[in-house]
Simulated scan of single mutants.
Amino acid sequence: MSGGYLDKNTANTSLDIEKRLNRIVKIGTGLEIKHTKMFEYLNASVLEKSENTLRLTTKESIKETFIFPGDNVSINCSNTYDLFAISGKIKNINSLNPLDLTITTTSIERLKDSRKYERYYVSLMANLNSPDFFDRVFVVVKNMSSGGIKFNCSEYLSMTDNVAVEVILDRTNRLSFRGAIVRRSKCKSYFEYGIEIREISESNYECLKHYLNYLASD
Rank of each mutant, 00 (worst) to 15 (best):
residue 192 E to D: 11
residue 40 E to C: 10
residue 181 I to S: 03
residue 24 I to Q: 03
residue 2 S to F: 13
residue 36 T to G: 00
residue 206 E to F: 05
residue 28 G to E: 07
residue 74 S to Y: 03
residue 47 L to W: 04
residue 90 I to A: 11
residue 117 Y to S: 14
residue 129 N to P: 00
residue 186 K to R: 12
residue 142 K to E: 12
residue 137 V to E: 14
residue 4 G to Q: 11
residue 188 K to H: 07
residue 68 F to W: 01
residue 174 R to S: 09
residue 41 Y to F: 15
residue 135 D to T: 03
residue 112 K to P: 00
residue 101 L to H: 03
residue 52 N to K: 13
residue 147 G to I: 02
residue 69 P to R: 12
residue 189 S to Y: 07
residue 39 F to D: 10
residue 151 F to R: 00
residue 15 L to T: 08
residue 197 I to E: 00
residue 172 T to R: 11
residue 130 S to C: 07
residue 7 D to G: 11
residue 193 Y to T: 07
residue 65 T to W: 04
residue 61 S to G: 09
residue 11 A to G: 03
residue 161 D to C: 05
residue 119 R to Y: 05
residue 39 F to L: 08
residue 197 I to F: 02
residue 179 G to W: 06
residue 28 G to M: 08
residue 26 K to Q: 15
residue 154 S to C: 02
residue 58 T to M: 05
residue 203 S to N: 13
residue 58 T to Y: 05
residue 49 K to A: 06
residue 213 N to K: 05
residue 194 G to R: 05
residue 119 R to I: 15
residue 111 L to S: 08
residue 100 D to W: 01
residue 189 S to L: 06
residue 125 M to T: 02
residue 122 V to N: 06
residue 199 E to D: 14
residue 194 G to M: 04
residue 215 L to P: 01
residue 208 L to W: 00
residue 76 N to H: 15
residue 38 M to E: 09
residue 101 L to M: 06
residue 79 N to C: 06
residue 92 N to H: 12
residue 32 E to Y: 13
residue 148 G to R: 01
residue 78 S to R: 15
residue 180 A to H: 09
residue 202 E to D: 12
residue 19 K to Y: 09
residue 120 Y to N: 08
residue 137 V to P: 09
residue 11 A to M: 14
residue 187 C to P: 00
residue 210 H to N: 12
residue 130 S to T: 10
residue 180 A to T: 08
residue 138 F to M: 10
residue 191 F to M: 06
residue 111 L to E: 09
residue 110 R to Q: 15
residue 172 T to W: 04
residue 130 S to H: 07
residue 130 S to F: 01
residue 24 I to Y: 10
residue 144 M to A: 06
residue 152 N to E: 15
residue 38 M to I: 00
residue 141 V to S: 04
residue 23 R to H: 10
residue 217 S to V: 14
residue 65 T to Y: 07
